[in-house]
């Protein structure tokens, strides 16, 4: 268990510092790269929790596909370096206030619910197998069939919309 704990602490440090780096960097490409690192550390968290499928999906979808498109757009627009002056002066105090509220809530919940969290057992070894994936597929196509289908239709609509927007209009 101690190895897991050490790994977790190192990863937590990395993920928090990459998240901070993403927010504080004035170069948008560096911000995007920090975010990629953050996604990868989150994937390793999933591995620590015994969910290899979600970890791999996280890397493939978020780090591999979505962030590449983000980088693509940033580079094509040529707006890599942000101006030093602050355009939204009200943003920083508001963000600080909301972050403080979130931190207070998190600490409160941690203190109140500490006992029940401690009772959470470590993930079962049986979860870490192919059967888990098979079960997930079955559940997706039976219990959660409607949300699954609605999501796929939503994605299809978005795809058709993107294609229509890029088409030249015929005069």
């Amino acid at each position: 268990m101690t190895v897991d704990l050490i790994l977790f602490l190192i990863l937590a440090l990395v993920s928090v510092s990459t998240a901070l780096g993403m927010l504080l960097s004035r170069n948008t490409v560096y911000s995007a790269l920090f975010l990629v690192l953050n996604f990868v550390t989150v994937a390793v968290f999933y591995l620590l929790l015994g969910a290899p499928f979600i970890a791999m999906a996280q890397v493939t979808v978020y780090a591999g596909a979505i962030m590449v498109l983000f980088l693509f757009v940033i580079m094509l627009l040529g707006t890599e370096v942000l101006p030093a002056s602050n355009i939204l002066p009200w943003q920083k105090p508001l963000a600080g206030g909301l972050a403080a509220v979130l931190a207070v809530e998190a600490i409160y919940l941690l203190l109140v619910r500490a006992r029940s969290v401690a009772q959470v057992t470590s993930p079962d070894v049986a979860i870490n197998s192919m059967d888990n994936l098979r079960e997930m597929g079955k559940v997706l196509f039976s219990t959660y069939l409607l949300p699954f289908e609605v999501t796929s239709i939503l994605l299809l609509v978005a795809m058709v919309g993107a294609i229509v927007l890029t088409k030249k209009e015929k005069a």
């Binding site: 290899p52 499928f53 791999m56 999906a57 890397v59 493939t60 591999g64 590449v68």
Partner: peptide, 24 residues
Amino acid sequence: INVGVLYLMSIASIAVYGIVLAGW
């Protein structure tokens, strides 16, 4: 690993970064 094929997919999708970053 039991998701070996997915591992291949995720590493293949990461491989784009080197080339994009070199270009930029």
